[in-house]
């Protein structure tokens, strides 16, 4: 009897260990603003992301202060004046892959994906729908996507003095390699 219990328990344990969750703590998200006056680019290499392949749920989280700009003063203005990082330190995304059946996480390859969810920036949450690709590799899963974000939608005020320098639509690029989550 005891043996059976042990075997069952081990089996249950194995089941929980089966690879259905992938994560990273150093994913990359960049944004790019382009106007005739100035191009601005910022990169964040400390993105946390987690994916549940069973449910298709997907979550991202990053610290606004971890965006690196070429110009230190720009970085300061970004944090101090625009996204107000002291008041709203984080940006998060929580969504679901809506075409989950099209993605085979057991088989290596590149799959187009559609993700719907809630993006929170500057304390404001908006529903968004983005297209991206899911690449299943031998090491894990790579998520990539490009989508526009409008600062005005998230109540980020751009004063008229710098209006010409900051794009109305800012292109966000996601590129994160996720590895299996071991528990």
């Amino acid at each position: 009897m005891k043996t059976i219990i042990t075997i069952l328990l081990i089996a249950v344990g194995f089941h929980a260990n089966a690879q259905d969750k992938f994560f990273t703590r150093n994913g990359t998200i960049t944004f790019f603003s382009t106007t005739p006056v100035e191009d601005i680019k910022a990169e964040n290499f400390g993105v946390t992301a987690i994916l549940d392949t069973k449910t298709g749920n997907l979550e991202f989280s990053l610290l606004m202060k971890s965006f690196n700009f070429k110009k230190a003063l720009m970085q300061e203005h970004f944090n101090e004046n625009y996204v107000e990082s002291d008041a709203f330190p984080k940006s998060t995304f929580s969504g679901t892959i809506i075409n989950l059946p099209d993605v085979n996480f057991e088989k290596e390859g590149e799959y187009p994906a559609k993700v719907k969810g809630e993006l929170m920036i500057h304390g404001q949450t908006r529903e968004i729908m983005v297209d991206g690709t899911i690449e299943v590799t031998s090491e894990g899963v790579v998520l990539s996507s490009e989508f526009p974000v409008s600062p005005a939608d998230y109540e980020i005020e751009i004063p008229s003095v710098v209006e010409d320098k900051i794009a109305k639509q800012i292109l966000v690029t996601v590129n994160t390699e996720l590895e299996p989550l071991k528990r």
């Binding site: 009897m1 059976i4 328990l9 249950v12 089941h15 994560f23 703590r25 987690i50 979550e59 989550l181």
Partner: peptide, 26 residues
């Protein structure tokens, strides 16, 4: 006892999948 144990384990596993944020796992 064994059945009860398993039952709880299953419940536990389900609860984890459904409730809360995925990020909490990390």
């Amino acid at each position: 006892i064994a059945v009860t144990c398993l039952f709880f384990l299953v419940i536990h596993a389900t609860a984890q999948d459904e409730g809360g944020s995925l990020l909490d796992l990390l």
